[in-house]
Simulated assay, not measured.
Amino acid sequence: MDVLAALERKHSLNLFPIENRLSPRAAAALASDAVNRYPYSETDVAVYGDVSDLNAVYDHCVSLTKEFYGARHAYVQFLSGLHTMHTVLTAVTPPGGRVMVIAPEDGGHYATVTICQGFGYWVEYVPFDRQTLEIDYTALAERTAEHPADVIYLDASTVLRMPDARALRAAAPGAVLCLDASHLLGLLPAAPGTLVLDGGFDSISGSTHKTLPGPQKGLLVTNSDAIAEQVGARIPFTASSSHSASVGSLAITLEELLPHRGDYARQVIANARELARQLAARGFDVAGEAFGFTDTHQVWVHHPEGNTPHEWGRLLTATDIRTTTVVLPSTARSGLRLGTQELTRWGMKEDDMTTVAELLARLLLRGEQSRSVAADVRDLARSFPGVAFADRPAPLAVA
């Protein structure tokens, strides 16, 4: 097998809500000498002697993270979203503590409950309103008044509505509030009124390769000195290597996106809303019409009776369209979960969502042959070879 050839980018239409495109500079960092190096460190009994000054790269990445999110403290040592979740939960939850999370059928991450139970925590679900597709803050207040939670860890992986940090704080005033923003990190600059650190979340963390177009890694920000001390004390026991090349790649991503972070976030959301409207206009059953379909990068499409999400998923994959089928909170059944963050990173705008919706309609509603649709998919992908929202946009080579 030619492994390098298999790893080359294929011309496809990426509607995964869990992936994004690295810039050429950020991708180059992953192939640098730092990929196999540790930064300098000292303890009472040991010295790890790095001669490359990788600590400066780490410090720079931390500074950029704090500036990007307007936070007082930041950590970038985590390898992934799940790695971050493990570290945060064990840092802030007391032994045998009570943790509230989002149920998987309400959009919660599949692994959170198992992780919490493995650490011996008592787990309960945050109340969820399936009509509005939001947390039921009134029911949450009633529940926490009766049984106070030590930690509320919001872990939404399938999400159309932004959580309201202040409403959450009012409903659970005594709990440590942690937002797993793996799906939202790149959108936070467009949601200052609902996603806040001061008076809201104690920490915001998550993976850095979804709406934030960085490498596969994790970060955490907080304005709480106490949370920062707890997390910082825990990190040496969860991250012996932080993958220096990925830290550099994340720093480059933040450098490039920083001046455009608000424009990028707003465009991702605008593209998602327009894609949803265009799909609905063509006859797809799209969730969330009552509130404009979506407030995030995600669009949810319910499959018709007599059709299974696996049939749609396999057909889309065969047509070079990358998608996910998961349980959607709107129905508690499987359906299509689409995302617009990578298309936005390519440089697509609202008008381009008409083309994307038409490709999906041709394939899934009209039964057009996969081969003919795939040819148009590849042509569309080839027409967006570069990276938008970067200070140094550099086209990628087109094969």
Rank of each mutant, 00 (worst) to 15 (best):
V51E: 02
V51D: 02
S52G: 01
S52T: 06
L54F: 00
L54S: 02
L54H: 07
V57D: 07
Y58T: 06
H60I: 01
V62I: 02
V62P: 00
L64H: 02
L64D: 03
L64F: 03
L64T: 02
T65W: 00
T65G: 02
E67H: 12
F68G: 08
Y69N: 01
A71S: 03
A71F: 06
R72C: 09
H73K: 01
A74M: 05
A74R: 03
Y75N: 08
Q77C: 02
Q77I: 03
F78Y: 12
F78L: 11
S80A: 11
L82K: 12
L82I: 11
L82S: 11
M85I: 09
H86N: 04
H86D: 10
V88D: 05
T90Y: 15
T90H: 14
A91C: 12
V92D: 00
T93S: 14
P95V: 12
P95Q: 12
P95C: 08
G96A: 09
G96T: 06
R98S: 09
I102E: 08
P104M: 03
G107E: 07
G108V: 00
G108K: 05
G108P: 03
Y110P: 00
Y110L: 09
Y110D: 04
Y110Q: 05
A111C: 05
T112H: 10
T112E: 02
V113G: 00
T114S: 07
Q117D: 03
Q117E: 08
G118F: 13
F119R: 00
G120D: 00
Y121K: 04
W122E: 06
W122C: 08
Y125A: 08
V126N: 01
V126T: 01
R130L: 09
R130K: 11
R130G: 04
L133R: 12
L133I: 07
I135E: 11
D136F: 15
Y137Q: 11
Y137T: 09
A139W: 15
L140Y: 14
A141Q: 15
A141K: 15
A141L: 14
A141I: 15
E142I: 15
R143T: 12
T144Y: 04
H147G: 04
H147V: 15
H147E: 14
P148Q: 08
I152R: 07
I152E: 11
Y153W: 04
Y153I: 05
D155V: 01
T158Q: 13
T158M: 14
T158N: 13
V159W: 01
L160F: 10
L160H: 13
M162T: 12
M162W: 06
P163W: 11
D164C: 13
A165T: 14
R166V: 14
A167V: 12
L168D: 10
L168C: 13
R169C: 05
A171S: 15
A172Y: 05
G174E: 10
G174P: 02
G174I: 10
V176T: 10
V176A: 04
L177F: 02
L177G: 06
D180Y: 13
D180N: 15
A181D: 06
A181Y: 02
A181Q: 08
S182W: 09
H183W: 03
L184T: 10
L184N: 01
L184R: 11
L185D: 04
G186M: 09
G186S: 06
L187I: 06
L188C: 05
L188M: 09
P189H: 07
P189M: 07
P189I: 09
A190Y: 13
